[in-house]
Amino acid sequence: MKLLIIYTYPNHESLNYAFLQKVLKGSGENSNIKELQVLDLYEEGFDPRLVFNEQQRRRDMHTDPTIEKYRKQILWADKIVFIYPIWWGRPPAMLLGYIDQLFASNFAYKDKKGHFPEGLLKGKSVVCVSTMKGPTHYPLLWLHNSHKILMKRALFNFVGIKKVKFFEFGNMESPKGNQTKKLEKVYHYFKKVAY
């Protein structure tokens, strides 16, 4: 299995970075994972802004040469891992900008007759590791599960990725947030995951 980790947090001394380290440690001890790449969007200097004009058209995003290497990473990967905070009930703008550019028509999906497109990324799986300041059940009870619906239904299922696993951790700024236990949970998952 080939693993692509997309890390989206601007601080390498953060809890999110600790989750990245646990994913790397568990993956390094997993014989099912043969190859691994990490894309740190902030360290990479990824530009999340969309630019559409006479030279750059939305319908041509799937061939934009400036993001070709990122398209190749997605095609290469069997499993894609996203590590990010939940801010205002959704992923940060940096990650959403990556999604807007990379999960484009004629690369991630193709329009066809009917209500739904053909997903072009079938056979891949996704894991979302997300952290938030608020309580663990806040997205479910207050936001009607909008974060998971956004990521699973509106994005991944749309492009053909049906297998999506969530680690959605709340209370992460609290001294009673069980951070160590949650870090170990992620480590053990990646140490054993087969696909």
Score class of each variant (00 low, 15 high):
W87C: 11
P65W: 05
P91R: 01
E68K: 14
I83L: 12
Y42E: 08
G45H: 09
T66R: 08
P91C: 12
N53E: 09
L75F: 01
A108S: 15
S31C: 04
K22A: 06
F46Y: 14
G89D: 06
I74F: 11
F19V: 08
L15T: 15
K69Q: 12
L20T: 07
A104H: 01
V38Y: 02
F19D: 02
Q37P: 01
L20M: 08
F82Q: 01
L75M: 10
G89K: 00
Q37R: 13
F19W: 02
N16E: 13
Y84C: 09
Y42L: 07
F107N: 06
F82G: 03
F46C: 11
L95K: 02
L15C: 00
L39K: 08
G114D: 06
I33F: 06
W87D: 09
T63M: 02
G45I: 07
V81D: 02
P65N: 09
A18L: 12
G28Q: 05
L95P: 04
R58D: 08
F46N: 09
M61S: 07
N32Y: 14
H115W: 12
L24G: 00
P65Y: 04
H115C: 05
F107L: 12
A104C: 15
D40L: 04
L39S: 10
K25G: 10
L50V: 13
H115D: 13
P91Y: 03
P91S: 12
S27M: 04
E35R: 07
K22G: 01
Q73Y: 12
Q55A: 12
K22N: 12
H115M: 13
E35W: 05
P48T: 11
G97M: 02
K113N: 10
R49Y: 14
F82I: 05
L95V: 11
N30L: 06
Y84R: 00
A108T: 00
S27E: 05
R49S: 14
L24F: 02
P48V: 12
W88A: 11
V81I: 14
N30V: 03
V81H: 03
R90P: 00
P85G: 08
G45D: 11
E29Y: 03
V23Y: 01
E68M: 10
K34C: 01
F46H: 05
N16I: 00
N30A: 06
W87I: 09
G28K: 04
R90W: 05
Y109R: 07
Y17G: 06
V81T: 11
S105W: 05
L36W: 04
R49T: 13
R58S: 07
W76E: 01
R59W: 03
Y17S: 06
G28N: 14
A93V: 10
Q21N: 15
Y84F: 14
R59V: 09
T63S: 06
E54D: 15
W88I: 13
N106L: 11
P117N: 11
N53L: 08
E54H: 11
R49I: 13
I33A: 07
W88P: 08
V38I: 14
P91W: 02
S27F: 01
L41P: 02
